[in-house]
C-alpha cells in the first residue's frame, strides 16, 4: 500500500469530506500546491478553485471551494473551506447592508417590524389586564 495522508475538508456548515489520500492538490494563494504524505507543516490561504484528492487507486475526487484556509501537518491535511465567495469589498458591502437594515428598521420603515411591535404591545396590554383582573378578584374576596 502506498503512503497515505489523512484529508479533512470542513466548512462552517458541515464536514464535506474525510478520508485517506496519496496526494492532495489545492489552489493556494501563492500558487497551486501539491501535498504528498509527510509534507512539512504549512498554512496558507486558498483561492477559489478545485481541491483534488487522489485516492489510493489513482482515481481523483474533486471538491470546489470558494476560498478558505489550508493547514498541512505531516500526516493530516485540513481544508477549512469557505461556503461563500469572500473578498474585501464584498464583505464591506455586506457590513454596510447590515447597518442600513438596522437604520431602516429603527426608523420604522419596515411593515414587518410594525407588526412585531404591535404584537409585543398587545401581549403587554393582555398581561396588564390579567393583573387588574387578579387584583379585582382579590379585593372582591
Amino acid at each position: 500500500m502506498a503512503m497515505t495522508i489523512h484529508v479533512d475538508i470542513v466548512s462552517a456548515e458541515g464536514a464535506i469530506h474525510s478520508g485517506l489520500a496519496t496526494m492532495v492538490y489545492a489552489p493556494g494563494e501563492m500558487g497551486e500546491l501539491g501535498i504528498a504524505p509527510r509534507h512539512t507543516p504549512l498554512i496558507t490561504r486558498l483561492k477559489a478553485g478545485d481541491v483534488r484528492v487522489e485516492h489510493d487507486g489513482g482515481e481523483m475526487e474533486h471538491f470546489y471551494v470558494s476560498g478558505g484556509m489550508l493547514e498541512v501537518q505531516p500526516d493530516v491535511v485540513t481544508v477549512l473551506a469557505d461556503t461563500a465567495l469572500r473578498a474585501r469589498d464584498l464583505d464591506e458591502a455586506a457590513a454596510l447592508e447590515a447597518k442600513r437594515r438596522a437604520e431602516d428598521a429603527l426608523a420604522g420603515r419596515s411593515a414587518e417590524l410594525e407588526y412585531a411591535k404591535a404584537q409585543a404591545e398587545l401581549a403587554e396590554a393582555v398581561a396588564q389586564l390579567r393583573a387588574i383582573e387578579k387584583l379585582r378578584k382579590m379585593k372582591g374576596k
Binding site: A95, A98, K99, R101, A102, A105, L106, E112, L113, A116, K117, Q119, A120, E121
Partner: peptide, 19 residues
C-alpha cells in the same frame, strides 16, 4: 426579528441587524 423588536421598544444603539 424578536431582538430587533425588543430594542425598538427598549431603546438602544443598534449598529447592525439581520432577520
Amino acid at each position: 426579528n424578536k431582538a430587533l423588536g425588543f430594542f425598538r421598544r427598549f431603546g438602544g444603539n443598534v449598529m447592525g441587524q439581520v432577520t
